[in-house]
């Protein structure tokens, strides 16, 4: 279970409080107006910033001493998800070995993960020679290999068209199921949240609210969420 216990993040002109728990294997959307602190919430979980109060824990273990790379977390950013000087294969292999020196068995695993996300035969290409959707697939192959129990997605695939984005979200769900991961996805599109199903954390007014079932929340929004959705 991922828990944020009495977490407070304060910056000049900005404050965010979170006190919530997320079950393992859950699908959670993070919705809210821009600037409310959706990305900040993910940064605190990923370890890019340390809360001013409270603690972030996973399965009861305080994550505070762990730098980002040691946390049980894989993340997809808005951009900069692949290294442009490495091939798709090498990028995916970073999920297994940072040195890039792989055994034969590990090479097979990387190749299988690329096949799994639909990139058969494209391992030798560099990101510049891949489409936006294919680049997202490489990142997912890497996440498959890292097999961390929490997946954080910060407005992923925002540059993709609606149909392609739908397919990518389905693939995110499949990958998460295969490795048994919890998914936390920041989005500004309620349709993304409906598609992901599960629960929604609504972030507004300096607070990240406890997760509530997404369909119910969107069908009968509380006043603050209604204001965000309908203006």
């Amino acid at each position: 279970m991922l828990t944020l216990e009495g977490v407070e993040i304060r910056r000049p002109g900005f404050a965010l409080a979170a006190d919530l728990a997320i079950e393992n294997g859950a699908r959670v959307s993070v919705l809210g107006p821009s600037g409310a602190g959706k990305s900040t919430l993910l940064s605190a979980i990923a370890g890019f910033l340390l809360p001013d109060a409270g603690r972030v824990a996973f399965d009861g273990r305080d994550l505070a001493p762990l730098p980002p790379g040691r946390r049980p977390v894989s993340m997809i950013f808005q951009d900069g998800n692949l290294f442009p000087h490495l091939t798709a294969f090498e990028n995916a292999a970073l999920g297994l070995r940072l040195s890039g020196r792989l055994t034969r068995e590990e090479r097979d695993r990387v190749a299988r993960s690329l096949d799994r996300v639909g990139l058969e035969g494209l391992g030798d290409r560099k990101p510049g020679a891949l489409s936006g959707g294919q680049q997202g697939r490489v990142a997912l192959a890497r996440i498959l290999l890292r097999a961390q129990p929490v997946m954080l997605l910060d407005e992923p695939f925002a540059a993709l068209g609606p149909a392609l984005k739908r397919r990518m979200l389905a693939l995110v769900d499949e990958v998460a199921t295969e490795i048994g991961a919890t998914v936390l996805m920041v989005s500004h599109d309620p349709q993304d949240a409906r598609r992901l199903g599960g629960q929604t954390v609504f972030v507004a007014g300096g607070r990240a609210h406890a997760p509530a079932p997404t369909a119910h929340l969107l069908d009968q929004p509380p006043p603050a969420l209604r204001t965000y959705l309908e203006g």
Partner: peptide, 24 residues
């Protein structure tokens, strides 16, 4: 641009130099 991803993957020290910094 690439620091957050490298941090997230735990790419530090010599590996970061060899696989990210020097190529970029």
């Amino acid at each position: 641009i690439y620091g957050p991803l490298a941090d997230q993957l735990g790419l530090q020290g010599r590996a970061r130099l060899r696989r990210l910094i020097l190529p970029r």
